[in-house]
Design a protein around this nucleic acid. Structure first.
Lengths: 128, 128
DNA sequence: CTGTATCCTTTCAGATACTG
DNA sequence: CAGTATCTGAAAGGATACAG
């Protein structure tokens, strides 16, 4: 198990072309791991949401950042924006198929972080 | 498969206590997803490295950011720093057990990002 | 309800020079 | 070799006000 990880990383690095900052891979990764990106993806993983719902879900996000994050993720093809031409405006946000693929990978990561944080809080710093 | 994701997220949110910015969960997540954090973790997933090796691996990183990132990850208990008291100095960096657990979850994410970027480049924007 | 536009503060990150 | 210290510019992010 341990050895295969090392092989994997080497292969990854070769495919990604060294992860240089201007590589498209890095750009997408930056969007996903941006301050609010992962939170929004996670929120939408639980179902379609409207602007106001997202604001409440992602506590502390400003309107500016919500708009920016949503536009970025939409441009990346991860989030779908559907506007209904009614008064007052009604807009639904959801994950695209790509977005859902990604969310599936993000979930174990979040679970680990939560579990790890809980463990650290309970038992001081766990044995390194 | 799809429904279980929604259940998962709801459970996650309950456990994490709403992901407020000052929550320890968010702090750790920010470290992992910081500009260089994931890259360093990925580098060390391929084996123990020294300062100079890491600098070369993470192309474009400054000494300041390398030091800062390493110290942060070390404080989080993800990276182990072993200094050998010799002249000239010799310091080895590696992943702790927790770090390795995390790296295992990071790998599929990176693979997906690379594959997705490649697909987007090859076929224009894939069907949303 | 769903945003946009502007300003303004804070934080991030790179370059440079220096140390044990 | 393996860092630290300091300075400075760039950029992210938040608050507020306003609009369709």
């Amino acid at each position: 198990m341990k050895v295969s990880i090392e092989v994997e990383v080497a292969r990854l690095r070769a495919e990604a072309g060294s992860f240089s900052p201007d590589c498209p891979t890095r750009v997408l990764l930056d969007h996903i791991t941006s301050r609010w990106g992962m939170l929004i993806l996670l929120a939408l993983a639980s179902g379609t949401m409207r602007w106001g719902e997202l604001r409440r879900w992602a506590q502390g996000i400003s309107e500016k950042m919500l708009a920016q994050t949503l536009r970025t993720l939409e441009a990346d093809g991860l989030v779908l924006r559907e506007q209904r031409p009614v008064i007052p405006p009604h807009v639904d946000y959801s994950l695209t198929e790509r977005g859902r693929e990604l969310a599936v990978l993000l979930l174990p990561l979040m679970e680990w972080v939560i579990a790890d944080t809980a463990a650290a809080a309970a038992g001081g710093t766990p044995p390194a």
